[in-house]
């Protein structure tokens, strides 16, 4: 495995990371090749979707709510100075839908679900469960990797939508119940400011790309983990590091392309 013994200095480290990214990319067609339109596979995907969804729901919903409160608080204090506090709804919605929703959800999802996918697959490898599947003529990529991969891709945009919803709710509660803005004005400004295409959809596209990145990195790290306890630990850490960096880099690139 190339991600062990990284203590040899930055060059070696960087090269390892790059070659890892390459093999990670090559892993993608191997997974996609195994997609079959069958109820069995659909069932396995739904089962994993349920697991990753329930695992991440609480953290995504609470974070969303508090992020909404914070943006509203910060935005209100700034807008008030310009006498534009009734635009609060618009400011909140734009920053959320375009940037904060997709990026924060992706980072939180990596920490919560991506790591457990990597650890789970890595442990299955370390305890010979993947070998046992192969010996039963069951393809471990099709059976173990694929359902988790697809489930993560589906989960990220859905969780992003929930994050946004809770954040808007938080902002609304702050604006209307706490500082006493007019509810109609709050919604009205928000609706007229948000364009479905450039604002909402661009966030949605981002969240799909982030979903693919997290899904691929986590299953790749788990499947290629060194089959020991240490290997599993390395795989989970690498999942967080690699996904987070990729998410932030891709966010910049996608923003530049979509704007």
């Amino acid at each position: 495995m190339s991600n062990q013994d990284n203590e040899f200095g930055l060059n070696r480290h960087l090269l390892n990371q790059l070659s890892d990214l390459g093999s990670c990319g090559l892993f993608l067609p191997k997974i996609l090749m195994r997609i079959r339109p069958s109820f069995k596979q659909l069932g396995q995907i739904m089962r994993q979707l349920y697991f990753v969804g329930t695992r991440s729901m609480i953290i995504i919903l609470t974070s969303g709510f508090f992020i909404g409160l914070v943006i509203a608080l910060q935005g209100y204090n700034t807008l008030k100075q310009f006498g534009a506090s009734e635009s609060l709804g618009a400011v909140v919605a734009l920053s959320l839908f375009r940037e904060l929703g997709p990026v924060l959800t992706a980072l939180l999802f990596t920490g919560r679900a991506g790591t457990s996918i990597a650890a789970e697959i890595g442990l299955m490898k370390a305890t010979e469960q993947l070998d046992a599947l192969e010996l039963m003529a069951i393809d471990p990529i099709e059976r173990v990797v694929l359902p988790r991969f697809i489930a993560a891709i589906i989960a990220v945009p859905l969780l992003t939508a929930m994050f946004n919803l809770l954040a808007v709710t938080g902002a609304y509660l702050f604006a209307v119940d706490w500082v006493g803005l007019d509810a109609g004005l709050f919604w009205g400004r928000m609706i007229s400011a948000v364009d479905l295409g450039p604002d909402y959809l661009s966030g949605f596209y981002k969240s799909i790309v982030f979903g693919v990145v997290i899904a691929l990195v986590s299953v790749f790290q788990g499947y290629n983990a060194e089959p020991t306890g240490r290997g599993v630990a390395v795989a989970t850490t690498q999942t967080v590091i690699v996904s987070s960096i990729l998410i932030l880099i891709l966010d910049f690139i996608l923003t530049a392309l979509l704007i």
């Binding site: 299955m124 469960q129 046992a132 192969e134 010996l135």
Partner: peptide
């Protein structure tokens, strides 16, 4: 190889049950 393996029963050194 898969068809061959369907005719095998293997008990591995650590039981390797799916957790």
């Amino acid at each position: 190889l898969n068809n061959y393996r369907k005719t095998l029963g293997v008990m591995l050194q650590n039981s390797a049950l799916l957790t």
